[in-house]
Structure formats: C-alpha cells, structure tokens
C-alpha cells in the first residue's frame, strides 16, 4: 500500500509558506558577503523551469504577495517582479526545453538580477527622497552572485519536492523516448 500523494497545488502552497517563513525567520537575518540571501526568486524560477509559464507566474504572484504582506512592504512590487521571473523561466522551458546541468545556475542569476534591479527601478519610479550611494551597484552585484550560488541547491530542493507529482518530468520524458521506439544515442551508433 502506497502513501497517498499530496496534490500539486497543496505542495506548491506548503512550499510557498515554508519558503516565506525560512526567508524571514532565518535568511533575512543572515549576511553572505554582506547581503542577506533571497531565495524567493529562486524558488519561483525553479517552479517556472519545472512546470511552465502559467504555474511559474501564478506561484510568483502569490509568493510575492506573501513576502510583501509578511514584511509590511508596498504590496504588489514583489508580486510583479516574481511574475516576470516565473513566467520568463517557464517560457524558457516551453520554447527551448533546456536540459543542461548549469541551466538553473544561469536562470537563477537572471532571476535574482531581474528582482533586485526591478525593485530598484520601481522604488526610483515611486520616488526616493534620500541620496543614493554608488555602493548600491555593488550591493546589486553581490546579491546576484549570492543568488547564483544558491540557485542549484534551491532548484534541486524544489525539484525533489515537486517531482512525484510533476505532470511532465524531464527524466520521465527522456526515458519514454528510449522505451517507446525512439533510439537512444548508444543504439543509434550501433545501427
């Protein structure tokens, strides 16, 4: 008898709540190279890469809303940026279907960059009263580097959480091609 599977939407909901709690309870209070690591965009990016553009965008919207609410920030900023991240990662999967091992690393760097640069642009548009230091650029660069370093473990974790219920898992898809008439590279070389 196998244990009942937790539905995908419930998994995503639990994942989002846990990520927000860990982010605000642990990660926001740490400093790696002087900046707090932010795994929110990386989780949204991972969902987009694994599940496609619509689940990525929806996950981005809700996670952004939770982060903005929990941190008493201006509502809508993180939602908007996370939608871009989730949708972008999802479209990459749908259009290019990348399977390189380093894809999450590159997409994680892009996701973090979109979030921090986008946040700064929105804040400038809303009006900044104080002088802005050039060190802001350094802060953005360091944040992107930290995000890039964390992208692989976060992606692996999200993939592990979602893999039992993924509608179209990468590995399963490749295996299907070999076992239903398609030739594996080894078989093809022998033929």
């Amino acid at each position: 008898m196998t244990a009942p599977r937790i539905p995908l939407t419930v998994r995503l909901g639990i994942l989002a709540v846990l990520v927000v709690l860990i982010q605000i309870g642990l990660l926001s209070q740490l400093a790696l190279f002087g900046v707090p690591p932010d795994i929110g965009p990386l989780v949204v990016m991972s969902v987009g890469l694994l599940m496609g553009s619509i689940p990525g965008a929806v996950m981005g919207f809700w996670m952004g809303l939770m982060v903005d609410t929990a941190l008493l920030q201006t509502l809508g900023i993180d939602s908007l940026l996370y939608i871009v991240v989730g949708y972008g990662a999802g479209r990459l999967r749908e259009l290019r279907d990348p399977d390189g091992a380093l894809v999450p690393l590159a997409v994680g760097a892009a996701a973090t960059a979109v979030t921090v640069v986008g946040f700064s642009i929105v804040e400038f548009l809303l009006g900044v009263d104080a002088p802005v230091s050039l060190l802001l650029v350094r802060e953005i660069v360091v944040t992107v580097i930290v995000g890039t370093l964390l992208a692989m473990p976060v992606y692996a974790l999200v993939r592990r959480v979602l893999s039992p219920v993924l509608p179209d898992d990468f590995r399963r898809r490749r295996r299907r091609a070999y076992t239903t008439g398609g030739l594996s590279p080894i078989t093809r070389s022998r033929a």
Partner: peptide
Amino acid sequence: RRRRAVLALLVVASLLLLTAYF
C-alpha cells in the same frame, strides 16, 4: 490565449495592488 490572459490578469492585479497601496 489562455496563457496570455492569465499573465495579463496577474500583472493587472499586481499593478492595482501597487497603485492602491501606494
């Protein structure tokens, strides 16, 4: 069409929240 509609809906919802909150 469905994909674009969902994206538009989410972006509009975010912008409405942002504008109303600010």
